[in-house]
Design a protein around this nucleic acid. Structure first.
Lengths: 117, 117
DNA sequence: AAAACCTTGACACGCCCGTGGTAAGGTTCG
DNA sequence: CGAACCTTACCACGGGCGTGTCAAGGTTTT
């Protein structure tokens, strides 16, 4: 049987058993269960847990950020809305021909405005 | 002068003046300032504030999520790390040829593993 | 059967997020 | 000049996040 119990998984990944349960509830790494309900972590889950640690510690992001990124991936509407908001950055009006930048903004947003009301 | 003061901007966008200052501190919408330090909201900022409201209320995301999305856009390393983590989803091992899925995981992560230690 | 695991559920705690309010002081308008 | 605005800096507070610990009960191992 190629699967570790929660305490063994905790030892090889650096997370506490408590956090492994939390990570599961957050939908980030969900191990399969044994017949009696024990969590069973396979090689894929272990790898994912280790790189999750690298992500959090290496970039200072929270588990909820990873959860949001995961949500972004699965929800095309959300992704489109967020991207079009980011595209419309009104930074530095002076980097744009001064006569145009007002209309330029408004055009950028026309599509989005129709969608979200 | 085509720019609104903070209270006027608040009235036309639905945010409170307090929140407009908060949103600025979060790096999401940063208006330019008058000579004496007053915030001046132009058409671009106003539009951005309204669509930000749509994003938050329409999708139930927090301002910090929008901030994270913005950070993702600007930081290529972060984006690559997050994407490769999401790509390695160990969901449903049975959807993949059973002999391959273990190596498949490991290869997917090799690059990332070298970068974050 | 006892030890050493596992499960879920609860209480707790510190910190950050999203808000509001208020105070002390500068600016603009009438 | 006075009213009405603006600025920054604080205090406060409810809620969620990331953790730990503990209790009550089921499972696996020896």
């Amino acid at each position: 049987m190629e699967a570790l119990t929660i305490q063994e998984a905790a030892e090889t990944t650096g997370w506490s058993p408590r956090m492994l349960r939390y990570i599961e509830r957050a939908g980030l790494v969900e191990p399969r269960r044994s017949a009696s309900g024990y969590r069973l972590y396979g090689p894929g889950e272990l790898q994912r847990l280790r790189t999750l640690g690298g992500l959090v510690r290496g970039f200072g992001m929270g588990l909820s950020d990873v959860g949001f990124a995961q949500r972004l991936r699965g929800d095309a509407d959300l992704r489109a809305a967020v991207e079009s908001w980011l595209d419309a950055e009104p930074r530095r009006p002076q980097e744009v021909p001064p006569a145009d930048w007002l209309r330029w903004e408004q055009e950028k947003h026309e599509k989005l405005l129709l969608e979200m009301t």
